Simulated scan of single mutants.
Amino acid sequence: MSTFTAEEFKEVDEYDASCPSCSASIQFNPANGTLTCPYCGYEESIPQPELDEDRLAQEIQLDEALETGSFDWGAEKKVVICDACAAESVYDALEVANVCPYCGSNHVMESTAENALAPNGVCPFEITREQANENFQRWIKGKWFAPNEAKRKARADAFTGLYLPYWTFDTKTASRYTARYGKHRQVTDRDGKTRTETDWYSTSGFYQEFIDDHLVRATTRYNESILRSVEPFNTNASRTYSKEYLSGYAAERYSIGLKDGWKQAQQDIHSHIEGQISHQVRMRHNADIVTNIHFSTVHSNVTYKYVMLPLWLSSFRYSGKTYQFMVNGQTGKVGGQSPISAIKVTIAVLVTLMIIAIIYVLGEGNFF
């Protein structure tokens, strides 16, 4: 008998694609792009929009978004009654897909709520679990500072397929700027010694750039540095959202809302534009250094997409410690934590110091 009350939890419907041959749960298969039964091999194509332009996720005008707020994990729960075994499972309100812990059936729930936006795009898994493991083995073997024993013996724990929420933003930017740039020149004094002097100049200008699909994570639950290391994703190829792609995987909806996501995007774009302006000034004036960049940017025709992006999560143990890593489910790129050999680091430092010493001696002309 259930111990949950209506005031504590909200019951929601779940979708579980079932195999018509053996009634088992079928799941999305990255190898062939179909819903596949892991038991009898039955395959079912995912319905696609008739028009080609409708098959890709469409941009939405930012100023037309109705719900822009953020959410907190753990603030609300929901109950899913499994269609296969009738067991009750409790999920966080932000989870939109998972697997029944009792019978293994797929639970794909509503991807939105009354006060939230629905995803309009998804990049399906293209890398299989087996390929993710192969990429991990190549990645750990390529870590120069990792202990040799770890390279030989590291074995990944079970891989978890997960769709994470992201925002993408398109914007036309127009920036007016002022800056100072310097040109170095060599000066020889009376004693024949040379030194570098810099002549400074002021400049101003105008810079324009179209930013396409700038990516912003819509969750704070996972290691940010690892997530950055497995980016980018090809979000321009994201397909129109369909719940079938989530079958067999975990997924969550956004906790960082559209408003906060756009604030983060503006900060990222500001840093990017500053670098581009510095590059433009260097090229135009053949400058050696650029400083004191001040600029203001106007954004126009801002659009967004809310997309679900695929990741494989796993970890491995070495010398009693657990190291987490991720594999980009679209590109196969691996990033994460790995053990470091103190001996190898020491050798690298000593070799570097020797090289610096040799260069110094040669520069002083005292080699012989």
Rank of each mutant, 00 (worst) to 15 (best):
A158H: 04
A132V: 04
Y360V: 05
Y201Q: 05
L117M: 15
P124S: 08
N32Q: 13
K321C: 01
S315F: 03
C123E: 02
P47N: 00
V361S: 11
A174D: 10
S300G: 03
I226Y: 05
L56E: 05
L164S: 08
C100I: 02
N32R: 13
T196I: 15
T178R: 14
Q137T: 03
V187G: 00
G363M: 09
T303Y: 04
L62N: 06
E8T: 08
S255M: 05
L162F: 15
M1E: 05
E43G: 02
Y102W: 08
T178A: 08
N301C: 09
H285C: 07
K143M: 14
T198D: 02
S255L: 03
V298M: 13
N115Q: 12
D212W: 05
Q137R: 14
Q280N: 11
F71Q: 09
T331W: 12
A237Y: 01
S175N: 03
V96N: 05
D72Y: 09
T331P: 07
H270V: 01
S338R: 05
G121Y: 04
P147C: 11
C103Y: 01
L164W: 07
S105N: 10
N301M: 12
R129T: 08
Q58K: 15
R239H: 12
N120F: 09
I127H: 06
M1G: 12
S341R: 04
D260Q: 14
D16C: 15
T203N: 00
S105P: 07
F325T: 07
F325S: 08
D54E: 14
H184N: 15
E126F: 13
A348V: 12
W144T: 06
C37F: 06
R195P: 00
K344C: 10
G336W: 07
C82Q: 04
R239C: 09
E274N: 06
R217F: 12
E95D: 12
R221Q: 13
G332I: 04
T322P: 00
T198H: 07
I358N: 03
S45T: 14
Y42P: 01
A31Q: 13
F4G: 00
A357K: 12
Y249W: 01
T171I: 00
N98I: 02
N328G: 11
W139I: 05
K183W: 06
N148T: 06
D189W: 06
F169D: 04
A86H: 04
Q264W: 06
K243Y: 11
D54I: 02
I226P: 09
L227M: 14
D83G: 14
L227K: 07
S25F: 03
V281I: 15
M354I: 11
G41P: 03
D92Y: 02
Y102F: 15
Q58L: 13
Y39C: 03
T235G: 03
S25L: 02
G248P: 11
R282Q: 14
S238V: 06
L66C: 01
P101A: 07
K305D: 06
L246G: 10
M283T: 09
T68F: 02
Y166I: 15
P20T: 04
W312G: 10
T322E: 13
I277H: 07
P147E: 03
A237F: 07
L56Q: 08
I358D: 08
S238A: 15
F368L: 11
E197T: 12
E231K: 00
I293K: 06
V345A: 08
K344I: 07
N98R: 02
H294W: 12
V80L: 13
A150Y: 01
E88R: 11
I359E: 01
